[in-house]
């Protein structure tokens, strides 16, 4: 088994462990949010945010390359997060005038287009100037990578997960009341606008953290598939969140095994395992 070799052989371990740790943390970070994303029909917003984040990736890479910094690091990540949060905000503002799906369609396309051009420019700068390291490969950006995760990024993912889980626990009651019935939440003293904005911010953080592992294209799957599995297995909200976590962690773990054994990008293999688990969950949940 290559998986065991990669994770135990000292020659490989320091290369692979940060990515594996970050992937498992991403599962913990996304899974509790996922049932809410599914129930509030925010899946497509997540998709919009993750694709919009690609614009942030291009921008971060290009600005950094101009400043003589290549590769991929924590500063890039923070810039992408800010960009994604702004895109999420832009989507909610545009939604009011254009309708949500149109707003997402516009923001997604513009950010992907701008992101790709900036990515090429950054690659051009790196090619001309040997002092600037090359940006990560486009396949890694789109479909994820384990090896690009640095120990610093793994620690940052852990911090993000801790803050996000804490925040989710803190607002769990107003969040549930609002998610259950948006129209009457106001008469219970819950500020719908504030809860929605917080959820959108959490969504952005989750998407950006997931992008490292699953890439821009597949990041939202982590926010949708475990939630669907959890909701079909769980008999209560707590149960749904619990099953969502179980399926996300199993999906990431087995997805990484597939990645290591066959030498493929982690995004697609994690997503395929997650979907298999979701189907199994639905069958068991109904039976």
């Amino acid at each position: 088994m290559k998986t065991i070799e990669y994770l135990t052989d000292p020659a490989y371990a320091s290369l692979f462990w940060p990515g594996v740790a970050a992937a498992l943390l991403v599962a913990l970070l996304c899974a509790p949010l996922s049932p809410f994303v599914v129930l509030k029909k925010m899946a497509f917003i997540g998709q919009g945010v993750s694709h919009a984040a690609f614009g942030g990736v291009g921008l971060a890479l290009y600005v950094a390359a101009l400043a003589g910094v290549g590769g991929w690091g924590g500063a890039h990540q923070i810039a992408v997060l800010a960009f994604a949060a702004l895109a999420g905000l832009g989507i909610s503002v545009l939604s009011k005038r254009q309708g949500t799906d149109t707003a997402i369609g516009i923001v997604l396309a513009v950010c992907m287009a701008v992101g790709f051009e900036l990515y090429r420019l950054a690659a051009g700068v790196a090619a001309r100037d040997p002092a600037v390291g090359a940006p990560p490969g486009i396949e890694d950006v789109l479909f994820g990578s384990v090896l690009n995760v640095t120990p610093g990024a793994a620690v940052a993912t852990g911090l993000a997960a801790a803050i996000e889980l804490g925040g989710l626990w803190w607002i769990r009651r107003p969040l549930t009341a609002w998610a259950f019935d948006e129209q009457t939440a106001g008469s219970l003293g819950v500020s719908g606008g504030r809860v929605r904005a917080l959820l959108l911010l959490m969504l952005s953080v989750a998407v950006v953290a997931t992008m490292q592992i699953a890439g821009v294209v597949l990041a939202t799957a982590m926010l949708i598939v475990p939630g669907v599995a959890g909701l079909s297995m769980g008999r209560s909200l707590r149960g749904a969140i619990g099953w969502s976590v179980v399926s996300a962690v199993l999906g990431v773990a087995f997805g990484l095994v597939v990645t290591f054994e066959f030498g493929v990008q982690p995004g697609p293999s994690v997503v395929l395992v997650l979907v298999a688990l979701m189907v199994a969950g639905r069958l068991v949940g109904r039976g």
Binding site: R172, R173, T176, A177, F180
Partner: peptide, 28 residues
């Protein structure tokens, strides 16, 4: 409201729903 605006797929029991007003006023 006129139409039921609640999300009925939510895995909540009746008791959880009726406790929501108290829940949102209780410190986390």
């Amino acid at each position: 409201p006129q139409r039921v605006s609640a999300e009925l797929r939510f895995p909540l029991r009746v008791e959880d729903v009726v406790l929501q007003p108290a829940a949102v006023r209780t410190a986390p």
